[in-house]
Design a protein around this nucleic acid. Sequence first.
DNA 1: CCTCAACCTG
DNA 2: CAGGTTGAGG
Length: 400
Amino acid sequence: MDPNPSLLSSPSRACAQPAELCMEGRRNPSPCEQGRDSSFSWNQVPNSSLTDPDWFGDQQVQAKRARVETIIRGMCLSPNPLVLGSVRARDSPSCPEKARERKRKQSLPMQQNPPKPGPAGTHGSKKGGPHVREQLHMLKQQLRQLQEHILQAAESGNSAPGAHSAKQRNGYGRWPWTMDSDQQGSGGDLSGVEKHRVAEVEHQPEEPRSLSSGARALLEILRKELTGAVSQAVDAVLQKEGLNPSHLKKAKLMFFFTRYPSSNLLKAYFPDVQFNRCITSQMIKWFSNFREFYYIQMEKFARQAVSDGIKNPKMLLVLRDSELFRALNMHYNKGNDFEVPDCFLEVASLTLQEFFRAVSAGKDSDPSWKKPIYKIISKLDSDIPQIFKSSSYPQEPFRN
DNA sequence: CCTCAACCTG
DNA sequence: CAGGTTGAGG
């Protein structure tokens, strides 16, 4: 119940004691208290940062989306979706669930009998993408079911002659209405356009009626259904496919609050990610890399301070106009579209001071001299603002 | 054994 | 940033 969270004495001290120093560059009285129920000043976040139209420029995501859509369209047109294999191909390296191959094998001595006839060097079967393939297959089936339903509906609820011709032309894997929508749109972008298209259809009061109103209404419904299905499919596939650039960006921002996130925490803050071993360890790895950069910078600047003849560690503060801050901000908040929380500056200052103390005391002769520092810093994680729990944060801050 | 984090490398 | 390696710890 202590209102003053007692995480070590250090963290608070960093800013509480040398008030004179802190005052220099600090703009606000530390908003990020470490208390359990600390209230984060999120709402006051940067009006300025919201003006950036390219906030988390999701061009990569869009590109990816376009690819997926192309694939899905391919599924519609080709009964033999070989295309699937090339789906993910490049960017994200697949994570072949490190098949723990128990090497105790060899109950048979000598003669290595590699049952794998495969070409040397290639990993047997698993070379295909991760789960994307399965997912696409599922989606394909779903679309197929939809097709069936549609046909059934068409047969039962419609006596118009026009409908029959449509049904007859509907060969395996060929859907007339998909052609139709392909024709009116620009080839590439489905999703974005798609939704508008649906809206258009809905509001279109009347079209030239060459078909019975029943048939026409049905077709419209069908089109709606299909576009909806495709849209969902795209989203599903996209969700994929593991971690995307916006996830990375979000993770970097989260680093301002937590240097040592637990996997549970990550799960809580990335609700749109389906965690499995690979994804989890990849994210953990991200933070590991973040820390690496962070500590390297700290050490670098600490040594600099030492060689500059600085004596009092308290003199070392990471302020928003410092070089160190620029380096860190550049790394974790490149677009500078996020306001770095003060709690991070405090932790950074403390880290810097710890490195300074260690180096100036010659502790760095010990191979594991950093360990104690890591231990200290690992206890200084702050709570992460709830907004981060939104899957769409910081994406589309202006959604509606 | 297995996991995790630091470390090193590309 | 991802891979691979290593050493500490459960």
